Amino acid sequence: MNTTPAHTHPAMLAPEAVRLAFAPQGRLCASINAGNAVLARRDPHGPGGVSVDLARAFAAELGAELDTIVFDGAAKSVQALREERADIGFFAIDPARSEGIRFTPPYVLIEGSYLVRDGDARVSGDEVDRAGTHVVVAQGSAYDLFLTRELRHATLVRTATSQVVVDTMLADGHPVAAGVRQQLEQDAARLGGVRLLPGSFMVIRQAMGCPQSKGDAAAAYLSDFVERMKATGFVREALKRNGIEGASVAP
């Protein structure tokens, strides 16, 4: 577990009832998914990224110190929140994750895209869902959950983390990889010989969440916090500060 001081944020202090719900001992624990390159990263001095910036700002409103638990994939990060090992988390909204978790409105929108080899004949995502096509995805990711529901003919091949999706696709001879566009772009630049198909198969709605047990007032306050962070430009500035391109602030 990493411990970081809460960054001062020029906003209201949370009501006492909300503070007691999230940080009764004066410490707020955030579940961070470093498997999503848009939201978080591992730095030498602890985790960084847009979700960490938001966690620090929320801890500051609570007048609490921030602790972080960092995971390499969304499924583990979600499970930590569901098991109440963390007070808040940062995940894509998906019906399969709703049990035991209350989600805020989204703060960032990210594209889910397909990647193929340079010589592949496919020119659009519409050509992926074909019998005999194997699509590599990170297990438990938002796009895994979505494609599990949506694909009718193609077969999903699941990896432990998003960072090894394209490597697995190439090493095992699969034709398609699916993931967050920014991660796929990084992998394409690193490995070569692959290309992204134009467009996206889904828009991933990234939100904050808290355990259901925090109660209605706490969940409502967290949702209000997200809306204020969008309205004040905090999310937009966090994306810029962290060098994130291709993701947009949710309306």
Rank of each mutant, 00 (worst) to 15 (best):
M1C: 09
A14S: 01
V18C: 01
V18M: 03
A21Y: 06
A21T: 00
R27F: 05
C29L: 14
I32D: 10
A34K: 06
V38F: 09
A40K: 03
A40Y: 02
R41L: 13
P44C: 01
V52L: 12
L54K: 02
R56H: 15
F58H: 03
E65S: 10
D67L: 09
T68N: 10
A74K: 06
S77A: 14
E84L: 06
D87F: 03
F91L: 11
D94Q: 14
D94C: 11
P95H: 09
S98Q: 14
S98V: 06
P106W: 07
I110G: 00
E111W: 02
G112D: 02
D118K: 07
D120T: 07
A121T: 14
D129G: 08
R130P: 09
V137F: 02
V137L: 06
A138C: 12
D144P: 00
L145A: 11
L151D: 06
L151I: 03
S162I: 14
Q163T: 14
L170K: 01
L170A: 05
D172C: 14
P175G: 03
V176T: 00
V176M: 01
E185T: 11
R190H: 08
R190S: 09
G193M: 04
L196W: 00
L196Q: 06
G199V: 11
G199A: 11
S200A: 15
F201V: 12
V203R: 13
V203G: 08
I204L: 15
I204A: 13
G209A: 15
C210F: 08
S213E: 08
K214T: 01
D216C: 05
A218M: 00
A219D: 00
D224S: 12
V226D: 03
E227N: 10
K230P: 03
A231G: 02
F234V: 04
G243F: 07
S248M: 14
V249I: 12
